[in-house]
Design a protein around this nucleic acid. Structure first.
Lengths: 133, 133
DNA sequence: CTCTAAGTTGATAATTATTCTCATTTTATA
DNA sequence: TATAAAATGAGAATAATTATCAACTTAGAG
C-alpha cells in the first residue's frame, strides 16, 4: 500500500470519532478539508484500510437482508463458503445483556449475534461447488 | 392486516426454509407458483410480516455500513433514537464462541454482536431533536 | 347478500449505498 | 530521474430496496 494523503485524512477522521460513522458522514467532513475528493476514493480507501486490518467495517450479513420465520430469541451463523445462514440457540443471552447494560448504563432493548465460519457441510465435503459470491 | 394470498405464499416459503433466504431467493421460488407477482409485493410483505413480529429481518445496522478504527475484539451498541454507534468491550466472547461451536460443530472464525436500545444521552435529555431517520 | 372504505397488488420509476471504468496524476525505487 | 505500480477524480453502472399510483380485493356494516 503506497502512501496517500487522502487515505491519511480518512484515517484521521476515523480515529477522532468515537461513534463509528458512515461513509456519508465521513465524506461530509472530508470535503471541508479537501473539496475535490471523490466519493469513490473514500470507499476505495475504507475498503482498503479494512482489508489491511487497520479499520473495521461494521455491518451484518452483506448487501441484502435475510428473512427468518423463527422469531424466538436466537442467533445466526453464516458460512463463509456457501453463505447459508443457520440458527443457533441463545442460552447465554440474558447474561450477555446484563453485562452490557452494567458496562454502559444504556438501556438495552435487543441484540443480534452473527457468527461466521465454515459450516459442517463445507467442512466435510470440500464444498467448492457451493462457494458463493 | 387483511388476508392476502401472496402474503400466505411468502410465509409458507419462509417456513419451509431452514437457511433464512434473501428476498432474491424467495422471489425466485415465488415466481414459479405465481409468475405475475411483483417484487414490490414481496418486499412490502416481508416488511409487514417483520413489523408484526411474524418473521424476523436479519441484518446489521441498516442500509449503510459503519467504519471503526478500533480493531480489537469488541461489540457495538446502536441507539434506536440517535442512531449513534458505541463500543462495548467483549469479556464474554471466548465463552460465547465455545458454546456455539459445541452446539453446531461448525468452525467459528469470528462473530459480531450488535446491541440496540437507548443510549445514555437519549435517556437523560429527552433527546428528540437528535432523532434520526 | 352488496356497498363501501381500507388494504393490497402489479408495474415501474425513484432512491440509496456502493462499485466500476478510465484517463490522469502520484508514489516508490531501480 | 525514469518508470512501473498504485492512487485519484469524475461520472457511469449496479444492486437492493422503497415509493407511486391506478386497479383489484377484502372485510364488515347495513
Amino acid at each position: 500500500m503506497n502512501y496517500s494523503r487522502q487515505r491519511e485524512i480518512i484515517l484521521d477522521i476515523l480515529k477522532s470519532n468515537v461513534v463509528h460513522p458512515t461513509a456519508e458522514y465521513i465524506y461530509s467532513i472530508l470535503k471541508k478539508e479537501n473539496p475535490k475528493i471523490s466519493l469513490a476514493t473514500l470507499y476505495r480507501n475504507l475498503n482498503q484500510l479494512a482489508e489491511h486490518g487497520i479499520i473495521k467495517k461494521i455491518d451484518g450479513l452483506e448487501p441484502s437482508s435475510h428473512y427468518d420465520h423463527n422469531t424466538h430469541a436466537h442467533y445466526h451463523f453464516i458460512c463463509d463458503n456457501c453463505k447459508k445462514v443457520y440458527d443457533i440457540s441463545s442460552k447465554i443471552a440474558p447474561e450477555l445483556v446484563k453485562r452490557a447494560e452494567t458496562e454502559t448504563n444504556f438501556k438495552i432493548i435487543g441484540h443480534d449475534i452473527v457468527f461466521h465460519g465454515i459450516c459442517k457441510d463445507c467442512q466435510t465435503q470440500n464444498n467448492i461447488e457451493n462457494r458463493k459470491k
